[in-house]
Write a protein that binds this DNA or RNA. Sequence first.
DNA 1: ATGGTAGGTACCCTA
Length: 268
Amino acid sequence: MRICTWNINSVRLRAPIVQDLMRQHEPDIVCLQETKTPNDKFPHDAFTQLGYNHHHIDGIKGYNGVAILSKRPLKDAQVYSRVDREDGRHISAAFTVDGFAKPIEVHCIYIPAGGDEPDREINDKFAHKLDFVAELENWFSANHSDDKAMIALGDFNIAPLEHDVWSHKQLLKIVSHTPIEVEALTKMQKSIDWVDALRHFIPEDEKCYTWWSYRNRDWRKSNRGRRLDHIWVTPDLKPHLKAQDILLDMRDVEKPSDHVPVFVDFAF
DNA sequence: ATGGTAGGTACCCTA
């Protein structure tokens, strides 16, 4: 069972490279963020053509927007309003796999970027980001159960570990790596013992990035990346983690997203 | 210390 998360930065513009990814890597489920597309304009056909017949989407005009595209049937599809906003940042759906008794609920999440100033008193966007993470923590604490497994993935817009950024020291005051955000995300992670699936495979002292700014001339040469995209699993799935992949080559295609696809494989 | 790029929308917002 292969699952993928990718901040696609406009699904209409980049549906062809999502199709390439589906053809080349054959994930069972693809989760997208920043689809930037209202539901009535979502390019469903591009994905049903390739056998991804089950779509759960929540898009709005112009920004945000999340999607779950699956070869496997999806049930219990949910759309969440977080911090009292209906702005296309969190959906979930459940699926089953042979060899695993419980349903698996996948949560596709796009945490707010948070603006430039890491101070909730003067920056509403930063306050929104912190409130969003706190609400997610409370929701998962209240809604996890032994009856289901969960995967939480997406663009979390926070790089929590020292080696999740190109320079820990230079990014301590930059939104995405400030201690206050890292503390909030770590608290959420610990609340129900989420397993960080990428770091399950990649040692914490090894640099690991999933995003490079468009504002660098040569992203590969300067390599000023951050690990903003995450796949977390509940502890019952940990024994089934088999592999990870971060598709750096997708940063080099014509008209790339600034994020690359992140994969995890499970064996049941 | 600054500005660099990208997408969507409607002349400016978000990232």
